[in-house]
Amino acid sequence: MSKKKNILDHIKPAKTTVPSSDFFAGLAAKITHEYPKEKPSERSIRRRLFYFAYAAAAILVIGFIVFQDFNVPVRIENSLESNLAQVSNAEIINYIDRHIENYSSEEIIEFASVVLEGEVDLIADENFLPNDIQFTDIEKYISEEEINLYEFYEDELLIF
């Protein structure tokens, strides 16, 4: 008795004609040109500058508060304020630029994380989303916007 054939044995896929290699090379060149990727060193310097800017701003704010709380004599306070007022944004950025290599990434991130803590708490707050948002609203939004859930990490989807 002969073995019954699978239905797929009666369906023959035709060979697809694919474009030439020039097409794929051209496509890659177009994408890399439109979306250039920097080297990590350039990225990390920029990131460190960002953290350092936060840190510098925090130093100014903390310094100001400390001198307020301890009733520093008016003459000294005025002197500090006057000194701080004389420092321009450009000078702060120049200072950061010259001294950024004196600090490790860990030191900068650790210090900046203290400054950023308040903002992170705001996002983590359970009231960050309005209370009247329903699951069906979220599903409708995902469907209408044609959001592809496969593009997200699993961690990012845990809110669902």
Binding site: K5, I7, D9, H10, I11, K12, P13, A14, T16
Partner: peptide, 12 residues
């Protein structure tokens, strides 16, 4: 056409 149906299966 991307597929060709070969004879021999009544369902097809």
């Amino acid at each position: 056409e991307l597929i060709e149906i070969l004879p021999g299966d009544s369902d097809l």
